[in-house]
Simulated assay, not measured.
Amino acid sequence: MKFLLPMLFMMSSLSYAKTFKLMQYNVENLFDTRHDQNKEDYVYLPLNVKNRIPGMNEYCAKQGSPFNVNQCLNLDWTEPKLQRKLQNIAQVIRSYDNSGQGPDVVVIEEIENRNVLNQLATQGLRGLYRFQVLLEGEDERGIDIGILSKYPVISAQRYPLVINGQRVGTRGITGVALNVEGKTVAVFGNHWPSQSNPVQFREASARMLNELAKQSRADLIVAAGDFNTLPTDVPSPFNHLVDFVDAEREARKVNRNLHPGTHFFKGEWSSLDHIFIHKSSKMKPRFDRFQIMNRPFIMKRDERGSGQMIPNRFDFDNATGYSDHLPMTMEFEY
């Protein structure tokens, strides 16, 4: 009997462990159908709107490749197409598990503004995410970082990227503090400067993230998003994230069958997307539950030579598909 009581207590404690669930997802150019002033969102507009914008042809002519020029001039981004993409992205988020309720928090990259984030939350994900954060940044095209949460937002702030005293025209970092049943969870949403920018821009982003996390006293500090960093980057920006643990790296130690990456480019997989966990966090990371969500319905056969199943990116002409990235998820116990 003296052994039974402690065992029952342990079983009871385990059964009452609560879980906080996080997803990050680059949704690839999720724009609404309205032109935002002072933003170069011209590609993703209806043709009847494009044709009324002064200087449109001149702007499109500067878009480089014939494909980009043609898309800028002729892509007809209509309201029905937007609604289809919203439903498709919502389907992916709902597929987090069999409940169809999605994770507790979703960090979203490449979303244009609060209007389209609200449409995603109130239409495709109706009733699931009461709290929404999107703070406009300096990105020239107008893409930003959005955060959907089932838990109340205590605070939210966007931190612009500053190099040599000058703000860089990019997304910066969006930080939110959440009240998760009395626990404070700090989530930093990231979309670092692309590979077309010098690696020093991503190094500066890494240093800023590490410093922001140092200032937090949250029970869980997590950074998620598209870090646009490759293993070939020299020096590696991730060298500056000295106080963080890479969830994917740890997860691969316990699950060797994880999908090889979140992004497929030129015949190779990589994880531009990451979830980093600060070492001071008190919530327990469940690396055995980490996912790269290669759901069959969001994959398609690569017809350009590799024959692999790759992300079925959204086709802006026929309104099918999802994104060129796969979502990444992580769970924590408290």
Score class of each variant (00 low, 15 high):
residue 236 S to T: 12
residue 67 F to K: 14
residue 244 F to R: 03
residue 72 C to E: 02
residue 186 A to F: 11
residue 178 L to M: 09
residue 77 W to G: 10
residue 215 Q to E: 10
residue 12 S to Y: 12
residue 95 S to T: 01
residue 309 M to S: 14
residue 186 A to I: 05
residue 133 V to A: 09
residue 204 A to T: 10
residue 48 N to C: 09
residue 123 Q to V: 11
residue 144 D to W: 11
residue 227 F to D: 05
residue 319 A to T: 07
residue 258 L to K: 00
residue 98 N to R: 14
residue 147 I to M: 04
residue 256 R to S: 12
residue 47 L to D: 12
residue 177 A to L: 14
residue 306 S to I: 12
residue 190 N to G: 06
residue 182 G to F: 02
residue 237 P to M: 06
residue 109 E to C: 15
residue 168 V to C: 09
residue 247 A to C: 07
residue 189 G to R: 07
residue 78 T to G: 03
residue 74 N to G: 06
residue 26 N to M: 06
residue 233 D to F: 00
residue 126 R to D: 09
residue 288 D to M: 02
residue 71 Q to M: 12
residue 130 R to V: 06
residue 35 H to T: 01
residue 251 A to C: 04
residue 222 V to R: 07
residue 317 D to H: 14
residue 121 A to D: 04
residue 105 V to F: 01
residue 12 S to F: 14
residue 325 H to I: 07
residue 229 T to H: 01
residue 188 F to Y: 15
residue 122 T to N: 12
residue 304 R to N: 15
residue 16 Y to L: 14
residue 80 P to V: 00
residue 56 M to N: 04
residue 213 A to G: 14
residue 80 P to A: 00
residue 115 N to P: 00
residue 52 R to F: 06
residue 247 A to I: 03
residue 268 E to F: 12
residue 287 F to K: 00
residue 262 T to Y: 06
